[in-house]
């Protein structure tokens, strides 16, 4: 299946802003960060289709995974 990954802030370095990944069925966000060589500890916010995501949830075709390092303020 194909999914879209959006990266933000420092996670874009050497990876880009938006990627399309081809993954095996039942792949999870954990597989996504492994593929992209992102340490779990560098992920502060994980969204799947804009909603709070879980590293172990099964992804589906066309899902959008957004990954943020620690950021904040207002």
């Amino acid at each position: 299946m194909k999914i879209k990954v959006r990266l933000f802030a420092t996670l874009r370095e050497n990876r880009g802003k938006e990627l399309e990944l081809s993954l095996q069925d039942k792949a999870t966000p954990e597989d996504v960060i492994q593929e992209l060589e992102i340490a779990k500890s560098d992920v502060a916010i994980l969204l799947v289709n804009g909603r709070d995501g879980d590293f172990s949830q099964e992804l589906r075709e066309s899902d959008v995974v957004s990954i943020f390092p620690p950021v904040g303020g207002g």
Partner: peptide
């Protein structure tokens, strides 16, 4: 992560 990395690097605009 927020006060040591996020805010110094990008300011509040990273939100």
């Amino acid at each position: 992560g927020v006060t040591g990395q996020g805010l110094p690097t990008y300011g509040t605009a990273v939100l």
